[in-house]
Amino acid sequence: MTASCTRLAARSPTPGLLEAVADKLLSGRGIWPAVPAIIALTVVAVIPFIILLSLGFSQIEMERGTIVSQSFTLDYLINALSDPLYWTTFQRSMTLALTTTVLCLVLGYPVAYLYLIGGRWTRRAILILTIAPLLTSGIVRTYAWLVILGGRGVVNTALMQMGLIDRPLRIVNTHVAVLIGMVQIHLPVMILPLIALMARQDRRLEEASYNLGASRLGTLWHVILPMSAPAIGTGTALVFTLSYTTFVVPQLLGGGNYLNAATMIYEQVVYSLEWSKGSVSALILMASCLVVLTLIAMATSRITRWTKGRDA
């Protein structure tokens, strides 16, 4: 400590004590500058997670707001797992999230391809159209679908003017409406990692493919698609996590009665104040989410290794 202080003093002609301390603390060589962040993360995230875990697995007796006794129990987990409502709810969330992820990939990948082959202005337009929705509130974007799909909305007006239907179709409050909203909300999250990869892509590989006589479709299938495996992995993981745990779209486009995992947890925690039940639901949500994310990560690394191995 003293040695380093003298070294600092030697370097700067008139070192104020404050500056010497700042040098020591802020140089970024030691861990000190990160300590406030570590404390915040520990106190506001990690410890609460541990508490959540312990709440889900303990029998708590409370008297006048203070905990009297606490003992380990698996009751809440067993109750949850033997409750058919849990299974249907989580299954609904899972199906919705997986469908959303696949549709986002199907709609998002072509945009990334257009970005790859597009010129400067096409690329810029795609970037703006992708980033702008991310900066807009999810509620605003979901509300737009109420307007589009609603009784007097865009779709119904158009269909009625074309004479295809007499009365407005009921689209809002159906599974389809929720799915449409989900895909649109999460599409930018799929596209961003894909175009980030496309921007780094070495285009000489494509050229080589064309020179060897491959068609555009062949090049896309044999060269571009295999190379985008890591980005597809990132995109699907992000979209899955967000759509599996979302709250807004099912609430707004599914009407009040579309129960997915997130809305169920909200009801347990905020309306019925069932803490242990809510904790267990949150833990199941997190655990099942992690399982799918692990599968995605494993598949991605398998495919990446396979394409690399094939090239070698």
Binding site: V106, L107, G108, P110, V111, Y113, L114, A125, I126, L129, T130, A132, P133, T136, V140, R141, A144, W145, V147, I148, V154, V183, Q184, L187, P188, I191, S215, R216, L217, G218, L220
Partner: peptide
């Protein structure tokens, strides 16, 4: 080849419309 790439580009345009149309409406 033309059909395949055409379909890709059509899907791309559709996605971009889906992204921006709601805000405009």
């Amino acid at each position: 080849d033309r059909l395949g790439i055409g379909a890709m580009l059509a899907l791309a345009v559709l996605s971009l419309v889906i992204l921006v149309a709601p805000s405009i409406i």
